[in-house]
Design a protein around this nucleic acid. Sequence first.
DNA 1: TCGCTTCCGAACATCGTGTTCGGTTATCGT
DNA 2: ACGATAACCGAACACGATGTTCGGAAGCGA
Lengths: 187, 187
Amino acid sequence: MAGNGDRRVRRTQAALRKALIELIVERGYERVTVRDVLDRADIGRSTFYAHYRDKDALFGSCFEDLREDLARELSLLGPQSHDGSHTDGQSGDPLKPLTLIFEHAFRHPQIYRAVGTAHLHPMIFEVMREHLCTHDELRLPVDVAAEYHASALVGTLGWWVRAGFPHGPAEMARMIRELTVGGITAA
Amino acid sequence: MAGNGDRRVRRTQAALRKALIELIVERGYERVTVRDVLDRADIGRSTFYAHYRDKDALFGSCFEDLREDLARELSLLGPQSHDGSHTDGQSGDPLKPLTLIFEHAFRHPQIYRAVGTAHLHPMIFEVMREHLCTHDELRLPVDVAAEYHASALVGTLGWWVRAGFPHGPAEMARMIRELTVGGITAA
DNA sequence: TCGCTTCCGAACATCGTGTTCGGTTATCGT
DNA sequence: ACGATAACCGAACACGATGTTCGGAAGCGA
């Protein structure tokens, strides 16, 4: 599986990505130098620059993998109500997409801790936006509402990861749903 | 007003802060060098390091001023319902604190654009947390709910600033309130 | 005016970056 | 198995940013 291209290239890139993630978790992105990554991955300097323009590029490739992975898992669920409102039975459990996001973070704690959740924002935003467009029963600007809910979800997800998963993924999904559909007055 | 200490010190620090903010707005934080700040502010190199340990320290002093300014304005309103729920008439307009936050950003577009809104998060979070503690009618963990609403507010605020204030401050406050108290189903 | 503090700016050591290039080694297709 | 090809190595280099030092000039408050 996943065996495209030269084996050496695969080995090199995997080692670099692994090293970067580890180091970011240990020291934070800013405090990691290219030299550090090279030493940790045991890769030659020139080899690094043959693959990536700089540290940012390597970092980008890391979370791009992650993002695609999550997007693929989400797409397997098929089109459905993405935020849990409208339990109109035409598609599976409306809580499933939310749960899946939290489970994904739960399964990749290292990368999520390193990469942060900010990079998921655009993706979540688009999902929210599309959903709100098809179900637009509100007179609020779509952008505002989408940004609001995307920020809430992504922010809470990030907090949950940083706090070391104080609750289970499914539990988190349920709570987010309640907060989203019920508002602050729901008791 | 604000005339504490040596005039030269005030001049120097003000020039450095102003230069940094301008440059961050123009190029983004990472692409600003200490040299750039020195040139823009017309300040000697050694003088800079006599005042701040590095670029981060100067940056920190910038948004600390901002944070204190906003906190002072908020405290002038006195204790009240900070998120707009509970129109129980015992204190002024429940929408006022929210409006004040948006107005503050609207009055300092440069700094907000440069500093971003992430630094307000802890403050907003605490306000949310306290409010939810006193009005805890929900069985959800306070931290989760506080993080959710804080992220939503701060995220939307940041989007609004970056988008160039597509709506008025009061309008934004009203929309946030509706999204917060009404949930997604409120139509 | 006097004494003190701040500012200046040039010079310096140090570090991280990104590139180059000739030589070595692993991989893939046949 | 083997040969052509592509990837890797690593040392050396130029460059730019950082943070420090120090003697002298200038501005400030009293």
